[in-house]
Design a protein around this nucleic acid. Structure first.
Length: 333
DNA sequence: AAACTGTACAACCGCCGGGTG
DNA sequence: TCACCCGGCGGTTGTACAGTT
């Protein structure tokens, strides 16, 4: 919110605010913002908004750019790996969405936050437990995350039969650590994550889907690309037939001068092939099977282990199976 | 076919911390 | 030191669309 001055300033700002637009952005506004940033760069959002002729607040412009118009914003379903990473990192940092987003190239904090609220919290609600409860966290850690890992590995194994054509130029991103990825156990190395997924560094890793949204200023921008149309839900945590790991396939890594991020160009990205598997870098801050679970509080007949009846999500829908597993885990601990 | 409901996501809001004059 | 501005963050709301009744 603007900090209002006094007297005449207040009057002027109030008049300006009366002209300020709110709500959904139009294509023209998008183009104006894209063109201006392409020519002048981002930052100083309030003056940018005025200079670009946009009747929007600087905040609104910034948000529109960061969450939607940036060429490296990744759209589409949250992949299995991303789901796993979100669960993992949320377990470590809680609602630090922007921090979590740093590890998911092309995903915005807003998108991750929305994902968490609409998907994860929904299932916590269905399980009649608090999303921040130890029970739900344990379920994620000991059941759903290992299951996700299994599914990712299965998908990766299937992918090994595919021939991936690499581009002529390959920029290698070398994992600093190859973490153990045997079945459902994985180890944690925060620095490794940082090295591979820091979108703010010069080695930002983006995925091929980004190329479809790379409109490079106003030239190749199409309103269709910016459509807010609903994308088919991947509310599955692995239930769907997932495209083989976006993060384990090809990577597009910016090379050369990275300072031109405000003037995106498709040539800016070069394709790198099969640089690292996701499971080579997926990690567990908590350390699977190392923390004590509160099984005492999980009586077999509590709502917690009942089928929630959600048929929309076969991943989340395996609750009965999971809960049996859950109990077995408890028996062996 | 219409009404209703649920979902996903874009956008806004309020707060806070850092920078600056 | 203080006031102001700006950018960033997390929480919340609004709304379009899909699915269901």
């Amino acid at each position: 919110m603007e900090v209002k001055g006094s007297n005449s300033n207040t009057i002027i700002q109030s008049e300006e605010e009366m002209d300020l637009r709110r709500g959904p952005w139009t294509v023209d506004e998008d183009l104006a913002l894209i063109n201006y940033i392409a020519n002048h760069g981002e930052g100083r959002w309030n003056s940018l908004a005025r200079s670009a002729g946009l009747k929007r607040t600087g905040k609104s412009c910034r948000l529109r750019w960061l969450n939607y118009l940036r060429p490296d914003v990744r759209r589409g379903n949250i992949t299995l790996e991303e789901q796993l990473l979100i669960l993992e990192l949320h377990g470590r940092w809680g609602n630090r969405w922007s921090k979590i987003a740093q590890y998911l190239p092309g995903r915005t904090d807003n998108e991750i936050k929305n994902y968490w609220r609409t998907r994860v919290q929904k299932h916590a609600k269905q399980l009649k437990c608090d999303v921040n409860s130890k029970q739900f966290k344990d379920a994620m850690r000991y059941l759903w995350m290992p299951r996700l890992v299994e599914r990712i590995q299965a998908a990766a194994a299937a992918a090994t039969t595919d021939t991936v054509t690499a581009a002529a130029t390959v920029t290698t991103v070398t994992p600093t650590t190859i973490a153990n990825s045997n079945n459902t156990r994985y180890s944690y190395d925060d620095n490794n994550l940082n090295n591979n997924f820091d979108v703010h560094s010069g080695n930002m890793v983006v995925t091929p889907t980004i190329m479809n949204n790379n409109f490079g200023g106003s030239q190749s921008y199409t309103p269709e690309n910016s459509s807010t149309g609903t994308v088919a839900s991947s509310d599955s945590f692995g239930a769907q037939v997932s495209p083989i790991s976006d993060l384990t396939q090809d990577y597009y890594v910016p090379v050369g001068n990275n300072n031109n991020k405000n003037n995106p160009n498709p040539d800016y990205y070069q394709q790198a092939h099969d640089q690292l598997g996701f499971l080579d870098c997926i990690t567990s801050p908590s350390g699977l099977y190392t923390q004590e679970m509160d099984f005492q509080s999980m009586e077999p007949n509590t709502p917690w282990i009942q089928n929630d009846g959600d048929t929309s999500s076969s991943f989340w829908n395996v609750n009965v199976e999971n809960m049996l597993l859950f109990q077995q885990l408890g028996d062996t601990m």
